[in-house]
Design a protein around this nucleic acid. Structure first.
Lengths: 213, 213
DNA sequence: GCCTGTGAATCCATTCACAGCT
DNA sequence: AGCTGTGAATGGATTCACAGGC
């Protein structure tokens, strides 16, 4: 398929969703899955699954379906979750601590190589085996030295932009921002925001409309 | 403006984003804001801000801009974040505990009226003043009695569908799902998924493409 | 001059529907 | 018969560009 075509953003998001059901199928010993079945598991349409995958190649067999193991491997390769990306986390309050310990990072090949906080009581303490909290003032120096790829921001929104700027300065090109603040970024960098209050507000909106016009 | 027009989903999400910058402006004592300035703060385009707001009415003054206080009130009314919605949370591990204590709910008028877990050690303990953990087996009965509007799911993905089904059975119409599992739902209900690993995978994808074709 | 509100134009994403393979 | 891969059609969302008002 024309590898030149621009790939819809929504396609990448969905492809990331396909992973977990596929892992499940693999565990259950299912070897082949149709777009129809995968779509069912992911709550999307089967044509969507086929179109999404077709952007990256022809992974299926006509008349048969997709090999679960192969498809998983392909998707991981496409997403780049099969290679080691180096992470730094800034802010180790409740949220930051919980994040660092989340198994999602290890399940991919991602690895925390630095942790920062500005609270003197926290500096020097251990978050994970081998991961010691360093002063936020050293973000630029340490991240540059460690070759950090992805920065996680888990600080109050008032500090988010400052932290982001220092990460960019250190050459970090990707940021996962858990603070509810829209950070400015250089064109070459990518920021993903994670803010559950937006979803919450959507629910409230939905409830408010129900039964009305 | 034609209140009949279907409102884009993306518009609701953005309108929820406008709130925080507006609150900030209000605190700073700014009384009027232009679509250009608000767009800048929210990292969107000014035409987008105007179009989004125009779906709900004419809130601005030509040649001047929008009154910050009025606009905030209007947006809160649109989203329904100015009324009390009753919440129940299921699953009080790290994530659930942190969630229940998150100030975002109180800042809106939302109120936790029930909490559930299946761990006997947790049942009977207090999450928030007046909020005591009850056994998960009582979800249907308690949620019905309490008139719960929104259910928060913070259990392992293997239990997510079961919990969701019991919430729906109790008449809960909206679910905020923090487990990485796509739950099935009745047509009349709404589910919002919060899964940061999708954002994380997007970043990995972006990093993998950089510098390539 | 500056700013909103909005139809029209454009851009992007999803879905259809079927040719092609097993 | 069953399923993929995909061009064409449809449906949605964003952006343009300007009329209308301060």
């Amino acid at each position: 398929m024309a590898r030149e075509t621009r790939i819809p953003n929504a396609t990448i998001e969905r492809i990331a969703l396909y992973v977990k059901p596929l892992e499940r199928l693999l565990e259950e010993g299912t070897e082949v899955v149709s777009s129809r079945k995968l779509a069912l598991l992911c709550r999307v349409r089967s044509a969507q699954v086929r179109k999404d995958l077709s952007y990256f190649g022809e992974f299926g067999v006509r008349g048969v379906g997709y090999d679960v193991r192969d498809l998983l491997r392909e998707i991981r390769r496409i997403l780049g979750t099969d290679q080691e990306w180096r992470l730094a986390i800034v802010g180790l309050g409740n949220m930051g601590q919980a994040l660092a310990q989340n198994p999602a990072f290890a399940k991919r090949c991602h690895r925390f190589v630095a942790a920062f906080d500005s609270d003197p009581d926290k500096i020097g303490t251990t978050v994970l085996p081998g991961l010691i909290i360093q002063p936020a003032s050293e973000i630029v120096q340490v991240c540059r030295a460690e070759g950090v790829h992805i920065g996680l921001i888990a600080v109050p929104s008032s500090q988010a932009q400052g932290v982001a700027d220092r990460l960019f300065e250190a050459g970090v090109k990707a940021i996962l921002n858990f603070s509810p603040f829209q950070v400015r970024r250089p064109d070459c960098c990518h920021v993903e925001n994670v803010d559950f209050t937006v979803s919450l507000d959507n629910l409230a909106y939905f409830l408010g409309r129900k039964g009305k016009g």
